[in-house]
Write a protein that binds this DNA or RNA. Structure first.
Lengths: 206, 206
DNA sequence: TCCCATAAGTGACAAATGTCATTTTATGGT
DNA sequence: ACCATAAAATGACATTTGTCACTTATGGGA
């Protein structure tokens, strides 16, 4: 497997080269230190895998990734990150990077490279832990799990639409006090404090 | 690396065993053919990685995964799937499976196993292609269109998280009255009436 | 019929919220 | 230092909101 390494910390880059070349199946074609290098070197060597840091001067790893994959849709790019900057996960995925792992996890970079080389996508465990919260809740009209009645759920939808009690009452032909009582009951069931939290709950769970 | 293979198609299971044992670093401790087997065999052998089919009789791979990880939070489970059943991806992720790959991709299973063994999470390319659509619309930090200041936007996020004024004040080291004034200004700018509408606005626009 | 459960409403109350005018505090620029 | 300006706070006030105890329908079963 032929790879190119791009990292603005030359020491890290060299360490990576040394570690990875211990694996005889890996050949480091070239090294670069920023996103522009990455683009140039990718064009030049067309490596099987491009191993690149995210945080770099001039052009960061994400932009470089987008740039390269725009032209070479089959490019295999494995991004390296420190644990602090995990906010880029989404973009990394959307741009089509084949992996996103911690550079601290030295010994696992080689297996990750192999997996990527074989057509898989790899995420570090710490990265993976962030994913569930990024996933859409699938449409879930099933409010039964919360012991909510139809009317209660109807009120919740009104609340989540920004109506006040008077307006909800008018819409449902209820007294305003009744609506308040309903909301009280709903808040208790869902263990929430006020209508704003209820609205938030709605958008997060339904 | 010691693994256990579970697949209800004995032929596939055997093929896997043969293929994987060609890699001398892999040792197959046991084989099973359904989710119940998986749970029993996991307890019995505590393999480094459990390689399991998703579709099985008796108990499917997902439920088995949940079951096992509930008890062994550090369990490494790599799920195998056929091309058709990609609707399980989300659950696989949520349950904490360390991978989800096509069993057709024979030659890439071994690298995937190694990556998982080394603490990574692995997805097949075909699986990965489904992920972007499952990801939440990312935070749109571009609130400039609404003439909102940074602080105002920060407050909006707190409101949309269900905090009351006192809590927001504490978080931002403001007086409670200040927060109220801020919210007043925000509501005017966005032509909204109250914090609940503001929370709704946030979820609809950001 | 009576009883009981549920749905809806009322009234009173404290707390939180939104508005506004005004004051105090910081802060940058000359 | 000074001023101008923005940022933060204050206090007063009306309104909305949430809670609670209680009342009033309503509609089945027994």
């Amino acid at each position: 497997m032929k790879i190119v390494i791009v990292d603005d910390d030359k020491l890290v880059a060299l360490s990576l080269k040394t570690i990875l070349e211990a694996d005889k199946s890996i050949e480091v074609l070239a090294m670069g230190e920023n996103g522009e290098d990455a683009i140039k070197l990718y064009e030049e060597h067309l490596p099987d895998v491009l191993l690149m840091d995210i945080r770099m001067d001039k052009m960061n790893g994400l932009d470089a990734t987008k740039n390269i994959i725009d032209k070479h849709t089959d490019a295999k790019i494995l991004l390296l990150t420190t644990f602090s900057d995990d906010e880029y996960i989404i973009k990394a995925i959307q741009y089509g990077a084949k992996g996103y792992i911690l550079k601290q996890a030295f010994e696992s970079i080689s297996p990750a490279l192999n997996a990527v080389y074989n057509g898989q996508t790899v995420f570090g465990d710490e990265i993976m832990n962030k994913i569930p919260s990024l996933i859409k809740k699938q449409e879930n009209e099933d409010y039964s799990q919360y012991n909510l009645t139809d009317k209660e759920f109807e009120i919740i939808k009104y609340v989540a639409d920004g109506l006040n009690n008077k307006e909800i009452a008018a819409n449902m032909f209820f007294g305003e006090g009744t609506v308040r009582n309903y909301i009280s009951a709903i808040l208790e069931k869902l263990e929430l404090r006020d209508r704003t939290q209820l609205a938030c709950f709605y958008y997060k769970h339904f």
